[in-house]
Write a protein that binds this DNA or RNA. Structure first.
Lengths: 143, 143
DNA sequence: TCCTTTATATGATATTTATCATGTTTCCCT
DNA sequence: AGGGAAACATGATAAATATCATATAAAGGA
């Protein structure tokens, strides 16, 4: 479904969303440990996200990663696009070019609206939305 | 979503379902061409499927692959399981061990029932079901 | 200014997935 | 029998993904 890298990216960003702020930056190491993401790999992912303004960062002592207010308005799909590219989720079940409602592949209806809806959800949901759910006890931060 | 190999497997089996019978066997090469699946790779996949009794085959002149009546009752998920293993589709969005309706990860609800339904469809749908759809003009054989 | 601490950039290794190649077995045909 | 046509088995290569390692740049404090 998602690549490992995307899953790590989402977990890390969620961790930052819950635990960080401009005043409370978190070092890669301190994200890596609780989330069980290999430190070096995580660093690379965070850098990629930073380059695309998904997360914020400052170097040097007292530095680290955090989410600014605007970072929190990022949509989940943005993160996935950056890491996985943009056709991993949206392509047809059988990777066919011509597969649509008018000319469906045999598996088209099995997925049906479900995938469309899911993608739509990813496009509409922001990090902040998920944080609200967590704070409301509707879901739990993945560790 | 699915691995390349699974997609190839599904396409090849569907091709056989529509075009082959015990009396009309098809060589790997003649499946490879119309479906645009690399011949050598396809052969390997077909052998794996044959070993698991998903497709039938006979060697020697006049031989080839075909689907027996019982092959046609195979469920789509069986094919995917053989090629991709059994947790690529069913695992949580973030690959968490403990993610369920009682203890959902933040993305759990985004997928919602959609994935559950999709998996259920794969488990319930047989090759023959898809062939019926194709014959009824509801969908088109992927080439 | 210099040292430490942290992110950043870049590249190296490993693992998985996809693809190709080559020999072996089985079966039909003559 | 023997030769050719096919699947079958096995292993080699290539490409993508995941992981690790090392050097550089920025920032703060002594």
């Amino acid at each position: 479904m998602l690549s490992n890298s995307s899953k790590y990216a989402l977990k890390a960003v969620l961790y930052l969303a819950v635990n960080s702020s401009q005043a409370t930056k978190i070092m890669a190491k301190d994200i890596s440990e609780p989330t069980n993401i290999p430190k070096a790999y995580l660093s690379k992912i965070l850098q990629e996200l930073s380059r695309h303004n998904i997360v914020s960062s400052v170097r040097g002592p007292g530095g680290g990663f955090y989410l600014s207010d605007s970072n929190r308005e990022v949509h989940l799909m943005d993160i996935i696009h950056i890491i996985d590219g943009d056709n991993r989720l949206t392509s047809c079940m059988l990777s066919l070019q011509e597969c649509n409602a008018e000319h469906p592949c045999p598996m088209h209806d099995l997925v049906g609206d479900t995938k469309v809806n899911f993608v739509k959800n990813l496009e509409n949901t922001t990090i902040e939305d998920l944080v609200s759910d967590i704070k409301a006890g509707k879901s739990f931060l993945p560790l």
